[in-house]
Nucleic acid binder design. Structure first.
Length: 274
DNA sequence: CGGCGGTCCTGTCAGC
DNA sequence: TGCTGACAGGACCGCC
């Protein structure tokens, strides 16, 4: 489900609502999501105060005051809900429950179970296998035209799957890769090694423009994305290309194409994107 | 090493 | 009203 804008929105919401709260205890209703929840997870949470909530790539990092960091990835269908009190009925996909001392409850819900919930010590975070090989943040200066050109040079892979490669640049998923390439007027089928420095510059500007606009809109809700307060995003109403197969391109009125690349749907305009 | 396909899992929707 | 197959915001693994 969630790409950078959705994860960022969830993090900002959590920062507002649960920063400073104390975790009383944790209930695991399922011991594995995509990966096993480590033994000792509940004990390492119990009694800890939540210091801060940050994002790295599509991961949510929750710093606890006991020198541990909660690491959460929402996969395709993961959600974090903050409820004011115990719900009358739990959902069948409410996998992890954090009972806060103030009576509230934080729930990790994930129907498809592609997500990750784990914990590690502060000192291990830099070498954590899930974070170790990640590429640069798209909204930071390290994502430069020179860097992208360097990454593109040695690959003949199409630019769209390359943009989604988290080892190169993080946070860009299937929606925003299509949106950014449309904005940059670059075909998703262009082999990466044919991009020039000025192409890379346009791609970077478009990625940033699209991600920032989506964050402003609270992300995109296609089916079930909601932020931690249960609100939907509305960037889906601003899609220029994604999910618009056979509809008219907003620029040239030609029908929008839908192709599969690396098993994922790509939307683009044959006329406008070269 | 790079790049692709298959796979994990559940839910929803279109088409018959 | 079923049933079936395709597809869905991600990312790892193994194979060439």
């Amino acid at each position: 489900m969630p790409e950078l804008p959705e994860v960022e929105t969830v993090c900002r919401g959590l920062q507002q609502s649960i920063k400073g709260a104390i975790i009383d205890q944790v209930t695991l209703r399922r011991k594995n999501i995509r990966t096993a929840i480590p033994a000792g997870f509940a004990q390492q949470n119990a009694g800890a105060r939540i210091v801060s909530i940050k994002r790295r790539a599509k991961y949510i990092l929750i710093q606890l005051d006991n020198a541990h960091i909660l690491l959460i990835h929402l996969g395709m269908s993961g959600r974090i809900k903050v409820l004011n009190n115990l719900p009358k009925q739990l959902d069948k996909h409410d996998h992890v429950l954090w009972h806060l001392q103030d009576g509230r409850m934080v729930i990790y819900n994930d129907p498809r179970r592609f997500g990750v919930v784990t914990i590690c010590k502060n000192k291990d975070i830099m070498n954590h296998p899930l974070l170790k090989g990640l590429g640069v943040e798209p909204l930071e200066a390290a994502f430069s035209a020179a860097y992208l050109l360097e990454q593109c040079k040695r690959r003949k892979q199409s630019i769209k799957p390359l943009l989604m490669d988290q080892k190169i640049v993080v946070g860009v998923g299937n929606i925003y890769a299509s949106e950014a390439l449309f904005d940059a007027r670059i075909s998703p089928e262009r082999p990466a090694n044919t991009l020039t420095l000025s192409d890379c510059k346009r791609v970077i500007e478009s990625v940033r423009k699209v991600l920032n606009a989506a964050i402003k809109s609270g992300g995109s809700t296609l089916r079930n994305y909601q932020n931690s307060a249960g609100e939907e995003g509305y960037f889906q109403h601003k899609f220029q290309i994604y999910n618009r197969h056979k509809e008219a391109c907003f620029i040239c009125k030609q029908p929008i194409m839908r192709i599969m690349q690396a098993g994922r749907a790509t939307y683009f305009c044959k006329k406008c994107q070269k």
